[in-house]
Every structure is written in structure tokens, then in C-alpha cells.
Design a protein around this nucleic acid. Structure first.
Lengths: 198, 198
DNA sequence: GGTAATCGCATACGAAACGTATGTCAATTG
DNA sequence: CAATTGACATACGTTTCGTATGCGATTACC
């Protein structure tokens, strides 16, 4: 009985469009991704896309929200695994760097996203990653681990540093070696926030 | 005698196209900027654009190179004005933040650029700003002012932090107040690199 | 259980915008 | 002064987006 209720078909169609768009945006970029092409690849037409997402940009925004949610989950999980809260914060930044090495994330979230949707800080998905880092810094501040800094501003810059590091790595000839340099430099940079120098 | 030699007319045409494209890209973005429209605004047609720059992307790259050159000059000048080399380095970062507040730079260099041309670190213009920061860090390291860090990696992250800070400011409700928070946080962050804590 | 209404999705159409191929006229060269 | 170069304009075909319309199956209601 592949026959399911109508509601089932709808969510399946949405998921198919989301997956097809995500794939196309990640490999071709927003402008080069033809709606006719990738909807056909999903066994549908543009009609379905316009019905569910309004327009091309609407689908893109949905893809961004989906990826953003996945990233936030992964970061939270990674931070929770660290031995200390400070290490958790550092791990969040390094995790950000490593995720940005994934071509899909680099292309959609770092390259295409800002051009299509503007400043990431104003995205509807609210950029869960930055907020997670701010929360970590708030806790560290309350515990007296770090110096008295503006946690939101610092979180934004730390994530910015991570992003740039990631893009650098992604385009390097030797990503592994570059990754080591980047994570070490990141660690040094944020360790400057500690009240007691290591 | 507005009649000049042919070579004169050519450079003037190139300059007009560059200026018109720069204006259009800055206000409308790459995708929304119609070649028919902005070449007409310059008193020309798409024919001239294709002759001089190959295609739309070629013109965009020329605009980016032009802006990148201007930014590098301004940063160098600003750093040279600082009392100490360390302050010069800090000023470079803050100068980067402030420049990224200019709508033209934010739009073309930070938002549209990566989508059209890929990772900024691999742009032909080589990103003079990052290289300038690396040079400053190299000098500071040689003088023993900062701790032993990877200067290239650190320069990239510092510029990344600056960029993100700038985008945050540009989209804030109160840019002036946000700018103060951002520059203060940036200063705290990089001061962690100092050998002797302030 | 039959009929009517809903709506998920496809099809058809018009309007840009890009890139190419071709044309033209002025400036340079010998 | 004649020929050629080349800077730029014009014309055309292709692609892609967005809208308006149509169809058919499922759901709702009597």
C-alpha cells in the first residue's frame, strides 16, 4: 500500500523539492541552478515548487533553515561532549571550522547565502550557531573563566574567524595541514579571552 | 577640442563602464543589475561591455580589483599613522570594520563577491588587506611584541572577525552603538595575542 | 454512497536578460 | 588618399523566471 493519505504525499513532495534544491544549490550555486532541471530531477515540475515555496528564493530560504538547524544540533552535541565548559566553547569554534569544510555548507551557507538573503546575522533562522556561542560565553563569564567582554560581539567575531578559516582551508592545496594551522591559531586567538593565561 | 586621440576615448569608455557597473552592483546586486540598463546609463550599450570585459563577470571582477586596491591603500595609510606598530595592527582591523560599513564595500566585496567569484582568499586581487595584516603580524612577532603564532592564519581570522563585525553593525538598528561594541570586542580579542597583557 | 468542492500539481504563455554573430563608422597607417 | 583595423552598436536566438490557467484525485458534506 504505497497509498497514503494526502497529507503524506504533500510532505513527501516538500521533502523531495527541498532535497533536490539543496543538491542543486550546493553543486551549481543559486543562479546556475535551473528550477526546471532540479524539479524534473525530483520527478516534479516548477508548479509544485511555486505552490509550496512561493518562488526560487523561498525554496532557498527553506534549504538554509534546514542546514542551519542541522549545524546547530551538531555544534551543541559537540560542545556537550567536551570535558570543561571552556573546552566546549573552543570546540564549538573548531566544529564550525570543520563543518565549513563540507562543500555543501561552504557553498550554500557561506557563499550563496549572503548574496541571496543578505547578512547572515539577520536571517530568519537567527543563526543558531552564533547564539550557541554567545550562550557559552555568557556561562563562562558568569563563572569567571573569561575576562569581562561583550559576549554577543565576541561570539560574532569568533564565528567570523571560524568561517574565514574554513574557507581558507577549503581552498588550500593541503587542507589537512592548513586545517591544523587554522585550528591552532583559532585556539590561540580565543585563549586571549581567558582570565588566567594558560 | 574635445577630440582626443583614440586611446583616450578607450580608457574613458572603460572607466565609464567600470563606474556604471560599480554603481549598479553596489545598489542592486550582481544578479539584479541589468547590463542593458547600466550600460545605457553610461551612454553605451552591452556591445562596449563585451568588447572590453568579455562578459558580465569580467566587469564584476574588474570592479572588485578596483575596490580592493582602494581598500589596501586606505588601510596602509591608516596603519602608518598609528603611534606604535601594535596600534597600527589594531587600527588595520578596526579600519577594516569601518570600511565594511560602507554600503558599496559591504555589498560588492562581502555579499556579492563570494557568490560570483568564490572564496575571497583565492581572488586574483589576492586580497591585499589580509596580506597587509599578515605583514604587520610578522613585524610584531620579530619584535617580540606578540606571542608565537601563525601569522597568516591569525591574519585571516582577524580579518574574518572584522568582516563579521562589520556586517553585524551594518544591519543593526543602532549602528553607532553597535560599532563601539564591535571595535571594543575586537580590541579585546586581538589583545590576547600580546605577550604582555595590558 | 454519491456529488460537489478543494487543492496539489502540471501546462501554457509572456517577459526579461544574457551571449553571440554581424554590421558600421571613425581613426590610424602606409 | 586608400585600405585596414578595431571600438562599439544592433539584431537575433536561447534560457529562465513568474503568472495564469487547467486538470484530476482526494476529501468533505448531505
Amino acid at each position: 500500500m504505497a497509498r497514503r493519505t494526502r497529507q503524506e504525499m504533500i510532505v513527501e513532495t516538500r521533502a523531495k523539492l527541498l532535497a533536490a534544491g539543496r543538491q542543486a544549490f550546493a553543486t551549481l550555486g543559486y543562479a546556475e541552478a535551473s528550477m526546471d532541471d532540479f524539479t524534473a530531477a525530483a520527478g516534479l515540475t516548477r508548479g509544485a515548487l511555486y505552490h509550496h515555496f512561493g518562488d526560487k528564493k523561498g525554496l532557498f530560504e527553506a534549504v538554509v533553515a534546514q542546514i542551519d538547524g542541522e549545524m546547530t544540533l551538531r555544534l551543541k552535541d559537540r560542545a556537550a561532549r567536551a570535558p570543561t565548559r571552556w573546552e566546549g566553547f573552543v570546540e564549538e569554534g573548531i566544529g564550525y571550522i570543520e563543518m565549513a569544510l563540507e562543500p555543501e555548507i561552504a557553498r550554500i551557507m557561506l557563499r550563496e547565502g549572503p548574496a541571496v538573503m543578505g547578512d547572515p546575522a539577520s536571517w530568519p533562522s537567527a543563526n543558531g550557531c552564533i547564539m550557541a556561542m554567545k550562550a557559552s560565553l555568557d556561562a563562562l563569564l558568569a563563572e569567571g573563566i573569561i575576562r569581562d567582554v561583550d559576549t554577543e560581539a565576541t561570539a560574532r567575531m569568533a564565528s567570523g574567524a571560524s568561517c574565514y578559516a574554513a574557507q581558507w582551508i577549503a581552498n588550500a592545496e593541503d587542507p589537512v595541514a592548513t586545517s591544523k594551522r587554522a585550528t591552532a591559531a583559532y585556539r590561540h586567538l580565543v585563549e586571549g579571552l581567558l582570565r588566567e593565561q594558560h
